[in-house]
């Protein structure tokens, strides 16, 4: 097995993204929002195409049409749910309505995450090789129900364990061809990392916040790896707290002094920053990666997560 260093670079330019955003705003406005799925596809396409791993770009092959179908389904599902809740509320069954809403959301959110992951990764291609999400929706559902109840029962403390269990489950089920991702972050470490970050941020009047961000990023990246048989690729963050301080302060100043107009540049420079601070090395021979994952066209989950506004978070 040969030891390699791999490269991961973001090549997108703020100007280009700004233009894409302008076109998206125009089309979304004149279609009263219906253009949204196509706008999203265009933005995703930009981000993927400009992310280059080992000289080969990623490709997002999802289309506006697919996401539009999902958009309509997601819309109908959510309208039905909210309609039911509003109906109950108007008939003086507020408590029943709200309880029902929470229960339904508890079921819908994991299923939406599942659908979203399946779609997004099936549409992610690198070097002609498809990604894929192999998780089981019922396992994910059980994990989320258990996590939610324990988090409520422990007044939020279990949240750290819940977050890590969820992240582990999702990431460990992502494949690219015949290579598989794995994540080994655990709740206990994550919990103390946050306690430390929180307390030190208070004691240092917020200055430690940037080092806390650094730790969180490192905890995400350093615990992630990709394996293919007995070959492995390790990831490592080399960002320092100072780097994060510079990034966030400059972003803030850019945002304030341009009244938000610089947002595309802020997004792009943040992407560049994150990618350029990941060191990748290991023994995987990427040229030998094989196509194993199937295609998947249903974007309903993707769109529900959009409507509920929690984006695509790992």
């Amino acid at each position: 097995m040969e030891y390699n260093k791999y490269s991961l670079v973001f090549k997108g330019r703020g100007f280009e993204y700004f233009k894409i955003q302008l076109v998206n705003i125009i089309l979304t406005t004149i279609t009263l929002g219906l253009y949204y799925p196509w706008a999203k596809a265009r933005a995703l396409h930009f981000f993927y195409a400009n992310t280059v791993f080992n000289e080969q770009p990623f490709v997002f092959t999802g289309t506006g049409e697919q996401m539009f179908k999902g958009f309509i389904k997601a819309f109908l599902i959510l309208v039905t749910v909210y309609g039911l809740v509003i109906y109950l509320t108007l008939n003086e069954q507020e408590l029943v309505g709200i309880a029902l809403l929470y229960i339904i959301l508890l079921f819908i959110i994991p299923l939406a995450i599942h659908g979203s992951y399946r779609y997004r990764f099936a549409k992610t291609i690198w070097s002609g090789i498809r990604f894929g999400y192999m998780g089981d929706k019922w396992e994910l559902l059980m994990l989320c129900i258990k996590g939610t109840f324990l988090t409520i029962a422990t007044i939020g403390i279990y949240g750290a364990w819940f977050a890590m269990n969820l992240r582990r489950y999702l990431l460990c089920n992502i494949k690219v061809g015949d290579a598989r991702f794995s994540y080994k972050g655990v709740g206990g470490e994550y919990f103390w990392l946050n306690v430390k970050g929180y307390l030190l941020s208070i004691f240092t009047f917020g200055i430690y916040f940037f080092w806390w961000q650094k730790d969180l990023f490192a905890y995400f990246i350093n615990n992630l790896r990709l394996t293919k048989g007995d070959q492995t690729m390790l990831l490592k963050s080399k960002a320092t707290g100072g780097d994060f301080l510079a990034l966030i302060m400059v972003n803030l100043l850019l945002f304030v002094f341009t009244l938000g107009l610089a947002t595309p540049w802020i997004v792009v420079r943040s992407m560049r920053f994150l990618f350029s601070n990941i060191v990748l090395d290991g023994t995987i021979a990427f040229d030998e990666l094989r196509q194993t994952q199937e295609n998947f066209d249903d974007a309903t989950g993707e769109d529900i997560t959009d409507f509920l506004d929690f984006g695509f978070i790992i």
Partner: peptide, 25 residues
């Protein structure tokens, strides 16, 4: 497509278009 022809426009015109559109809305 219309989107493609918009993408061929320059940023300044697009920006003006966005401002006019949002003011109209």
């Amino acid at each position: 497509s219309f989107a493609a022809s918009l993408l061929r426009m320059n940023v300044f015109s697009l920006f003006i278009l966005v401002v006019i559109l949002l003011a109209g809305v």
